[in-house]
Design a protein around this nucleic acid. Structure first.
Lengths: 212, 212
DNA sequence: TTACTACTACCTAATTATAGGTATTTCAAT
DNA sequence: ATTGAAATACCTATAATTAGGTAGTAGTAA
């Protein structure tokens, strides 16, 4: 039995979801709310598996609500309810702790399927949102608008990567099949370009500036 | 016209993909490879939109290959080819820079659709992989609950921070009003605790594990 | 062709880091 | 009162990095 709680300000949609969920074998709608505050008071005793949550809520912002719920029940699975699929709010919601989202106009069968998917450890979402998530997490240090003023050559980047991976000069030389002297030479140029004078400084810049 | 390059060691699959891609309007298979090394030599002149890449390759590991391709062509979209959907390697590949993946047994029409999806900025993937990605990136955006298995003392953390800020032993010693010998002593203990043997490795761990 | 950049490589020299041992003091907890 | 952890400091010795000069080759662009 998948226990669900719904937070949705539109009465029609909220009641529709409750009837759908309660009327389906294996699903139970333990409670519904029209806004976040009262949900936060009761969510611990509700103790649902899945929280369906509108992000276009009056009063407390849905994103804030997600963060607060996660503090109370860190293991809860939150699915965002949204009208438009391509919405920056969805991405923010995923950052805040949601695990996926549902489009409100989704047909009931697909909707139940998505809830089950989330319950079983999946994250229903469109491939476009997926890409945004991936890109965000690939460049973890938000080097979006961080245009590299440091123009390292390909080889220099390779060598710097070797350092960040924990190798010393000899190991880098061996891995690239070049002499240690050549590695030294490259590091001299890398240091000049980055305006640093040691491995540690170079590693910090490489990571923080997103060079590697 | 979506330009595709394929890296796949199985001749049958590779040629099948080439024929499928070249035989479809709007798609072009500019080249195919059976392993990474020769692909890396030519990828720049191939200059494809999409790189389809097996991760179970002989010779160079597919993950390594992805990283190296990204150095050469940072804007390329990489899709991983895989036999099994639920594979830790897929997650590693996404970390390394891939944007999604394709299951080899996928029917041709779906396969082309996924390529177009990726070309248009999407990330085709299952909801389970999506969840793993989301969880990983939620974790990275909040190292609040990151239990440090590395238990450094307060002084050791101070000293390690000094290193990350770009100081050498003497500068750290001066800033903390202690002798260089003491700094050395602390670093010996820090290295033991972090299981590293150099400043660079210590800096990388300090940043990535959120110690500082 | 010429000029320029990138990559390769060797040389010397000085500085810094790594690795080990040892010892004293302080402070908190048993 | 004693133990133990943390921080301080000095010692020796080896290994590695930093900094400089120099030079050949390959490829590319003017």
């Amino acid at each position: 039995m998948i226990k669900v709680v719904v937070v949705e300000d539109d009465n029609e949609i909220r009641e529709g979801l409750r009837i759908l969920i309660d009327g389906t074998d294996g699903y139970s709608c333990v409670d519904t709310y029209s806004e976040c505050t009262s949900m936060l008071k009761n969510i611990e005793s509700n103790n649902p598996d899945i929280l369906l949550m509108d992000i276009g809520l009056p009063g407390m912002n849905g994103i804030e609500g997600i963060k607060k719920v996660k503090i109370i029940l860190p293991e809860i699975t939150i699915l965002v309810l949204t009208i438009y699929e391509e919405n920056d709010l969805i991405f923010d919601a995923l950052c805040a702790g949601a695990s996926g989202y549902l489009i409100k106009k989704t047909p009931p069968s697909k909707l139940l399927e998505a809830i089950k998917e989330a319950y079983n450890g999946g994250s229903p979402m469109s491939s476009h949102i997926a890409r945004k998530v991936i890109e965000s997490f690939q460049k973890k240090n938000s080097n979006v608008d961080k245009k590299n003023e440091y123009v390292l050559t390909r080889r220099e980047k390779e060598i710097l990567s070797g350092l960040v991976e924990g190798n010393n000069f000899k190991a880098i030389a061996d891995s690239l099949f070049i002499s240690v002297e050549t590695v030294r030479f490259h590091f001299r140029n890398i240091y000049k370009k980055l305006h640093v004078h040691s491995q540690s400084e170079a590693v910090v810049k490489a990571i923080k500036e997103g060079i590697v």
